[in-house]
Nucleic acid binder design. Sequence first.
RNA 1: GGUCCCAUCGACUAACGGUUAGGUCACCAGCCUUUCACGCUGGCAGUAGGGGUUCGAAUCCCCUUGGGAUCACCA
Length: 489
Amino acid sequence: MKDVRVRFAPSPTGYLHVGGLRTALYNYLFAKHFGGKMILRIEDTDQSRFVEGAVDNLINSLRWAGIEFDESPEVGGKFGPYVQSERFELYRKHAQILLDKGHAYYAFDTPEELLAMRTQKPGAVVAPKYDRLVMKNQYTLGAIETKRLMDMKAPYVIRLRIPPDAEITFTDIIRGDITVLGWDVDDQILLKSDGYPTYHLANVVDDHFMEISHIIRGEEWLPSTPKHAFLYDAFGWERPEFAHLPLLLNTSKQKLSKRQGDVAVEDFRAKGYFRSAFVNFIALLGFNPTGDREIYTIEELIEYFDLSKVNKSGAVFDLTKLEWMNTQYIKIVPTSELVELARPALESAGFGGFDDEYVGRVINLVKERIHFMNELPDFVPYMFGDIKEFEIEYIKKRWEENSKEIALDLIEIYKKDDVFNHDSLYGAAKAYAEEKGIKLGPITHPLRIMTTGKSVGAGAFETMEVLGKETCIQRMEKFIELWDSGTFI
RNA sequence: GGUCCCAUCGACUAACGGUUAGGUCACCAGCCUUUCACGCUGGCAGUAGGGGUUCGAAUCCCCUUGGGAUCACCA
């Protein structure tokens, strides 16, 4: 097997689509699996779609996901430049080669004429296709008129000439052999009237000269692959291997697109998903190495990756499982990293002044109860400052006749507790309950109310341990005061 | 509409001729319990339909049906 060289070739649209990430990821897994090279090439041949800063954004998002490139506009490489707008001469030269070989021709149709051609006549049975025997091109115009138009610098495009009787067959690693008749393939424009190449020309030329061995891309490219295969043949170049990945679908089973929201990798990152959870999830949208496991490290994915095991049918991009996967990673990821992820949210909530050790203890207290680290300030505001508000409904439900008496007793008991950890607090509460002949509930609920003000949270005793003795006693006494003053009635 | 691709639980998938069609998410029930979670146990649920081939078909072939992609001087 020759050297594996794959590429991710996005157009710089300003954000990274999850489908794009999946494509990049599979390219990456494939390259790493075979010890090959991963290349990033920017396809910016459409000048009207230029977005400032898009390339940096793309690289950043990919890097966040753990995908690095061996060759790219950023790190360079011997096959550069890696931005198509810097390679125009190459495309023009190769359009000329095609022209010389009779595989391409000049066409002079105006946009209006093309539009008229494409407008489906009522009852038409065939798809509108460029008919080079009818339209305005070098064949219908003749050599003299063509030269005249060229001399007077009339706008023209260069089209690929596909013989109607051609039978184009190519092999897709995932789908097998696919054959299309020349009759059904349109004479694709290769060079636009502004002199820029279209995707089809630029892509084939670049993949050839960058020595790309495998083209791994989305299934939406399948219909135009015959054109690409034909181009390789027309140039007399060896064709790379093709692999078309199944589409990522929305819940109505259609191609996932920007308009439906929730498709930009940047958004998922901002939402607080773990990179490893997100990548793990995306990787499993299309194949599963074993079928009985869900959690894989990137190294394992590289080891197990096999293009021929990738599914043929599209996968619905359903966030439910991603949520679950994220919670799985909360358990795995080291506390220090969780602290780091929680920092921005704490900062903006005004809780920035706490040290890593304390924040870490709070996180460990509640990490199995939250889905994202940025929920921390909202979930346990009482760990970072005085209780701002009490859940009145909870108090009404759980603060009973004897609660105050219990509270007062516990205050006295806990004041003498110098250990003040879960075991000591729990032990004392249990002993007290037994002595009074009551259950633990009438004790833990009032404790939770007094120390946190909320009905939901970590275990009451664990919470109190992290809160510390001083704070707890203070809050308990404060609550009794508030209670006596009728605040909660 | 033309061309091409696809078809296993609601979702993600495993089973590449021989399994009671497996796992995960979600959902439901129970257990655990100090609220909420986590966890544990169990349950619900699938080979689109019809023909072949074969001793044997989710798996191979054909047809039907359904879904999707694509048909730009976008990528």
